[in-house]
């Protein structure tokens, strides 16, 4: 049982939780994720750790309401408990001095991007961050990202904040004006796919952090399998970060839709019960 010590709404659908998890706070590194289970009947949901406080023994997670579990989670309040939190899972991000790092975050993907931006900055890189979302309300953690970035570019689909356009427009701008040595992209699968295509064109090494369906998160089930460089890999133990240019995004997108119908049904039932 892990206590929620702080809750903050970034927008109607995006919520940040600070959760007690002292052991995880101590051992987590940038790029790691946790699996949570809300209650005894809950499913196991992977969520990337965005921040941790060793002294307070807490970790920070950000969640976007999209289905039953995330709605239920978002409905919890400070003082409530999450039944299970396990982690840190996955390999941490390989942090190194690359030169100029382009960090692209889409929507709620900015949360896991934050510790990576921080780590690359601390490793002596120039970090240019692009935060992209559908509209202004969905841009999150801007101040925190700014703290560790040399420059922050905001992109919104509707132009309600920053520049109008998708993330790749911002990427092309940066790549056109300066030499980018390394790129990190985290966000919805489709966004990562296009980030990857963009950097592939310019031959910029890129990693993406994949957010596939998982059950145990420890390599046991294989639900999270993706094809990378033609080989089947498990996101939970082999990833979650992979060489973007080798990921089979189409297969991944297809696999992420495996439970679409059940999810829709469950969500409707949930909404009706509210």
């Amino acid at each position: 049982m892990n206590k929620i010590v702080k809750k903050r709404f970034f927008s109607e659908n995006v919520v940040q939780f600070v959760v007690e998890a002292p052991e995880i706070a101590r051992t987590r590194k940038a790029g790691n994720f946790v699996i949570i289970r809300l209650d005894e009947k809950g499913e196991r949901v992977p969520l990337t750790i965005s921040e941790a406080d060793i002294e307070k023994g807490t970790i920070t997670i950000v969640v976007q309401r999209i289905g039953v579990s995330t709605y239920k989670l978002a409905a919890l309040n400070e003082g409530d408990y999450i039944h299970d939190v396990v982690g840190p899972l996955g390999h941490p991000t390989h942090i190194f001095k690359a030169g100029t790092v382009l960090a692209c975050g889409g929507g709620v993907g900015v949360a896991p991007l934050l510790p990576i931006v921080q780590a690359f900055k601390e490793a002596g890189n120039r970090v240019v961050s692009i935060l992209a979302a559908r509209n202004k309300d969905l841009i999150i953690l801007e101040d925190e990202i700014r703290k560790y970035s040399d420059e922050v570019i905001i992109m919104t689909d509707d132009g309600s904040y920053g520049k109008k356009g998708v993330v790749t427009v911002g990427m092309e701008d940066v790549i056109a004006r300066e030499k980018v040595d390394f790129c990190v992209a985290i966000g919805p699968a489709i966004m990562m796919k296009f980030c990857s295509l963009t950097t592939q064109k310019h031959e910029i090494p890129t990693v993406v952090s994949l957010n596939t369906i998982m059950v145990d998160g420890t390599g046991m089930c294989g639900a999270c399998r993706v094809k990378v460089d033609g080989k089947t890999r498990f996101v939970c133990v082999d990833g979650p970060e992979f060489d973007a240019h080798k990921v089979d995004f189409n297969e991944m997108l297809m696999r992420m839709g495996a439970y679409k119908e059940q999810e829709k049904e469950a969500f409707e039932a949930y909404k009706n019960a509210q």
Binding site: V215, D216, T218, G219, M220, C221, G222, A223, R225, V226, K227, T232, F234, V237, E251, M254, R255, G257, A258
Partner: peptide, 22 residues
């Protein structure tokens, strides 16, 4: 022995195909 083996045959990553563990 918590790492399932697959057969690595074409189409094995289609939806509806599980490891027995999963």
């Amino acid at each position: 022995a918590g790492l399932p083996r697959f057969m690595n045959i074409p189409g094995e990553n289609a939806n509806g195909i599980f490891s027995s563990n999963e």
